[in-house]
Amino acid sequence: MRLVATLLLVTFVTFMATSLLPGDPVNALIPIEAQQDREFVEQVREEWGFNDPLLVRYGRWLGDAVRGDLGDSYVTGRPIIDEITPRLPVTGELMVVTVLLGILIGVPLGLVSGYREGSRADKVVSAVAQFGLSIPNFVLGLVLIYVFAIKLRWLPATGWTRISDSVTGNLKSVAMPAIALAVAEVAVYLRVLRSDIIGTLKEDYILSARAKGLKDRFILFRHALRPSSLTLTTLIGLNIAGLITGTIVIEQLFAIPGLGRRLFSAVFQRDYMMVQGLTVLLAAAYVIINATVDFIYIAIDPRIRRRA
């Protein structure tokens, strides 16, 4: 219910902001020479429904949007949804690979440094994590481009090979952008898991498991990691939402034909409809992902589930 309300609000605010703009959207539709022709302009206005009251237009726009019709691009004239669909898998792949990298590297490191709190390994890992959090992803991307594309010539600096064209080519094109995004993810997962593990290992049930003579490794995986999986789930969900911002930057830097890059070109072309459509889409995705995370959290935590 709350989710629907927030979604309605987001779409409403975006629509209003676009509509209340100074300047006539009709000017973007017809060539400058034709703009002097009052009758023609009026006809186009009527045809596109610009003369209707704002709320009516919002209702119509929302109705279309729910059915997947976000309108046509002012610049290319094609339906926005048609421009978005082929780009979705690209951004999706980048995000999935980033999250996977983050988990595969962050979780083991977090476990080790939490288990061996205060050891030299822990100190090194924590310092590296602190450093990883302090490098903006575009700087990291530039360093990667310089080393692997310009000096070593192992990977292409920009562009994208689809997985259907070539699997290795696809892996090569996803490697650097995903690493540039994943370093901060790794640092976040690692830090949270570390402090989680340190806290859990002080619990009484860990002591009793030790007293029973269970092996350290067994305790760590079966008893200590389990409660932390809740924190990690929330964190991963929140980070996926945050990754939306990250992919926009990284797609631009690596010239990857994803949603973020399309949003960018739309901004520079002043393609209002496209910017509006993508804003609504990304904000809605953000809201839905956050709500899903809350839901999953309730579903997997028996303590909360019983209370609810």
């Binding site: 927030t6 987001v10 939306i244 509006q276 804003t279």
Partner: peptide
């Protein structure tokens, strides 16, 4: 809190791109 909820629903960069396009 209504304002807070709406505002938190926008990813920062997306909102910013939207704002500079619309305000030009």
């Amino acid at each position: 809190m209504f304002y807070v909820d709406v505002s938190l629903a926008f990813p920062a960069l997306v909102f910013f791109l939207f704002a500079i396009t619309m305000l030009n």
